[in-house]
């Protein structure tokens, strides 16, 4: 069922991308193939595959969505996105502490231990990567304190 849904969406996406790919034209013919043929070939093959899955989604039926789990997954995605977006503005140490705490809770950690592990991760990994291994990480708001 879900495979069918995915195949249908993918088929539509292939059509949309094919329209987009049709406009790829080189101002001057550098080679006999050009930039458009290969992506169009891939899209055609993908569309054929999607059609096949749409008609004959063989294999194990995908189990129904467990909504409690889906909520957790969604929360986890939101936490990760927030982490990514705050990574530069807040700086590595603070954003990691927050993300470590939030994800710790999502994975059934208790309140205090999750907070402590998040904070420790932020500080220790900053020292490890930025100071010891020379992988530059953003300091964010902590930059003021350093200055």
């Amino acid at each position: 069922m879900y495979v069918r849904l995915f195949a249908a969406i993918w088929l539509l996406a292939c059509a949309g991308l094919a329209v987009l790919a049709w406009s790829f034209e080189a101002p001057f013919a550098y080679d006999p193939v050009g930039p458009r043929a290969y992506p169009l070939l891939l899209l055609a093959l993908m569309a054929a595959g999607s059609l096949w899955l749409l008609v004959k989604p063989k294999g194990e039926p995908t189990p129904a969505i467990d909504w409690a789990m889906a909520r957790k997954v969604l929360l986890c995605i939101v936490a990760l996105l927030a982490y990514a977006l705050l990574f530069e503005p807040l700086g590595f140490v603070l954003s990691t502490a927050l993300a470590g705490f939030a994800m710790g809770l999502l994975f059934n950690g208790r309140l205090l231990p999750s907070a402590v592990s998040g904070l420790l991760m932020g500080v220790l990994l900053y020292v490890l990567f930025d100071r010891l291994l020379d992988v530059p990480l953003p300091l964010g708001v902590l930059e003021l304190m350093e200055g």
Binding site: A99, G100, M103, G104, S114, M121
Partner: peptide, 9 residues
Amino acid sequence: WILVPAIAV
């Protein structure tokens, strides 16, 4: 709850 956040970081 320690392992997964560490992987994310």
